[in-house]
Amino acid sequence: PKITYNFLFKFLVIGSAGTGKSCLLHQFIENKFKQDSNHTIGVEFGSRVVNVGGKTVKLQIWDTAGQERFRSVTRSYYRGAAGALLVYDITSRETYNALTNWLTDARTLASPNIVIILCGNKKDLDADREVTFLEASRFAQENELMFLETSALTGENVEEAFLKCARTILNKIESGELDPERMGSGIQYGDASLRQLRQPRGSAAQTKQQCNC
């Protein structure tokens, strides 16, 4: 069956190696934990259609490699992203310390209006925790990020993280703060959109396709 949608958002999943980016994506798409996970080389993809505030939104998710060395490559994928999950591992201070760098990249290379949600992943490993909830939530406030602690293993807050990010983007569109028609907004109208708009070349082909997710 052809699933139509009102909007298509480009999402990024970024953060240091081994924080569980691909597992978060897998949990979000497949609703289960990926046991034998490879490490991502370059970029992998996922997509899912979600309902947010009465609108159908297709999320096109770019799951990037975490190693520092790959940053020159992954940076080129930031362009035109509407939202991002910025992931660290609550059991690794190192991954938390790297957040500033990831954040700078996201804000400068994607759109300055990019909506970012900070995800403290591996919430299930509370015994090995190195970063407190309070500390991270302060960091999130200072940097105007949304914040959730997630567990790709149990699925806790995983869906919420993606949906929260999507909902915020939608709100910003409705309030006029975000203009989907601006180049590089990371937002495209779907064919279910009520607004009839002349679509850019690339998106016409994309939205015409049926979605099997």
Binding site: Q67, R93, N97, T100
Partner: peptide, 22 residues
């Protein structure tokens, strides 16, 4: 752990150390 110094050290050194961990 608790090595906040390397936070914005521009990474090359931290990266090398981390690569053993990685």
């Amino acid at each position: 752990a608790a090595d906040t110094e390397s936070q914005d050290a521009g990474f090359p050194l931290a990266d090398r150390e981390a690569s053993l961990e990685l």
